[in-house]
Computed example of a mutant assay.
Amino acid sequence: MKPNYRRCLSCRRVGLKQEFWRIARVFPSGKVQLDQGMGRSAYMCPTSSCLQAAQKKNRLGRSLHGTVPETLYQTLWQRLNQSNTQEKQI
């Protein structure tokens, strides 16, 4: 089976699907959520530079054709901080 490749919406890096965060705008409700749901989705590198660019330039909102709540960005920042602390402990 061929691997699934995706592109980061911030830095445009191509990589395996598992390397990215998936953010989806669920159909038909239009709710934006992480990791699950059917509908329009966007992929982003789990790095601070990509997250900062996506938030500052509204790349996530434009990619999903909708508004992204501030709570979603807060959740992504928390995830990033948790993954960084786990890497430092190893």
Rank of each mutant, 00 (worst) to 15 (best):
Q18S: 12
T71A: 09
H65K: 15
R62W: 08
R12L: 09
C11P: 00
M1A: 11
T85C: 09
C8A: 07
Q82Y: 11
P28W: 11
V68Y: 03
S29F: 14
G39Y: 07
F20Q: 01
P28L: 15
P3C: 05
Y73G: 03
G66Y: 04
R13H: 15
E19L: 09
S10Y: 01
V26H: 06
P46L: 09
S29T: 15
E87F: 11
G66C: 08
V14K: 15
L9Q: 04
R62G: 05
G61K: 09
V32Q: 04
Y73A: 10
P46Q: 07
S49W: 04
E87G: 13
V32P: 01
R25Y: 09
P69F: 03
C50H: 03
E70C: 10
W21S: 08
V26K: 06
Q33L: 03
R59D: 07
L80Q: 04
T85N: 14
R25K: 09
N58F: 11
S63L: 00
V26E: 08
S10R: 01
G66A: 15
M44P: 00
V32W: 01
S49C: 00
G30L: 13
K57R: 05
F20T: 01
A54F: 02
H65I: 08
G39N: 07
V14S: 11
Q74R: 07
K56E: 10
F20K: 01
R25C: 09
Q36L: 08
Q52N: 06
Q18M: 12
R25E: 01
M38L: 03
A42N: 09
C50T: 04
M38Q: 13
W77K: 11
K56L: 06
K57I: 01
L60M: 11
C50G: 07
E87A: 15
Q33E: 03
Q74H: 05
Q78W: 07
E87M: 13
Q78R: 15
P28K: 14
Q55E: 14
V26Y: 02
Q78I: 09
S83K: 13
R62V: 13
P28R: 09
L72N: 07
L64N: 08
P28E: 04
V32E: 02
K31N: 05
G30P: 00
Q89M: 12
R12C: 08
K17I: 06
G61C: 11
L60Y: 02
S63E: 14
R59N: 12
F27I: 11
T85H: 13
R62S: 14
G66E: 00
E70K: 13
M38H: 12
Q82A: 12
R79S: 04
V68C: 06
I23A: 07
K56M: 12
K57D: 03
Q52W: 04
T85V: 12
Q18K: 12
L51Y: 00
G61V: 05
G30R: 15
L60F: 04
T71H: 04
S41M: 11
L16Q: 11
N58G: 10
G30C: 12
Q86C: 10
N58D: 15
V68N: 03
M38G: 12
I23Y: 03
C8H: 01
H65T: 10
